[in-house]
Amino acid sequence: MEQLVYKKPDSIKEDFKISFCPGCDHGNAVKLVAEVLDELGVREKTIGIASVGCSVFSYDFFNVDIVEAPHGRSMAVATGVKRSKPDKIVFTYQGDGDLASIGIGETIHAMTRGEKVTAICINNTTYGMTGGQAGPTTLIGQVTTTTTKGRKAELSGYPLKISEIFKEIDGTAYVARVTLDSPAAIMNAKKCIKKAFEAQIKGIGTGFVEILATCPTNWKMTPQEAHARVRGEMSEVFKPGVYKDKVSEAK
């Protein structure tokens, strides 16, 4: 007797081809967002914003309407969509270079306005698509193609802790930082992503989830080593957890 044990979410396209590198967490992150859209029953009224970087290809995977934003501008584009069509579910899918560097202004102000949208940020401490340059979240000592001797604070400052900043913004309703380094972490990440969408659906404010993700290609690590790095030095600087939860408070 056949038993269905796993099914591709409806919010993932039928003919999708994964183009991410082996061991990259983008695949799992996309899947979790898609599963949440399915479970909330909002796929048919969702409009996604594709950003620039490895996350640009989200339109290859998500089975929803998508508009492309210039680099960093996703939260402004999301604002325009949501304010024009308040009954739609709007989300951005961005990397840390896109959201936390070039787009930090648009992100903070969209959150300050309490835009009823959801932002998912993949933080892998580097610019993945362009070949692993240092970004705003690069850890002190981390070797990249533009910090070949390791990031030095006196030269290029400190890693930006976005979840800690965003929790202080009055317009955010939900802020969490998660990892995808174990089955339990993946289950937890999905719960958090769901809450970030509920923040929007319930009209409380902006929902945000920062996903600490691997980039084995640019980190020059095996997938296992990369996850160990997420658990280790990355989680020490970027502490996982729920930073703000007005969604549960509202229940």
């Binding site: 409009i47 914003i49 508009v67 934003a69 210039p70 501008r73 402004a76 584009v77 999301a78 604002t79 325009g80 969509v81 949501k82 304010r83 024009s84 069509k85 739609k88 202004g105 648009e106 102000h109 306005r113």
Partner: peptide, 22 residues
């Protein structure tokens, strides 16, 4: 109808992009 005081002209034109896409 929607009025948003954008934080910059960069944001304003991208809000227009999003709104126009609908």
């Amino acid at each position: 109808r929607a009025y948003v005081a954008a934080e910059s002209e960069v944001a304003a034109i991208n809000m227009v992009l999003g709104a126009g896409s609908t």
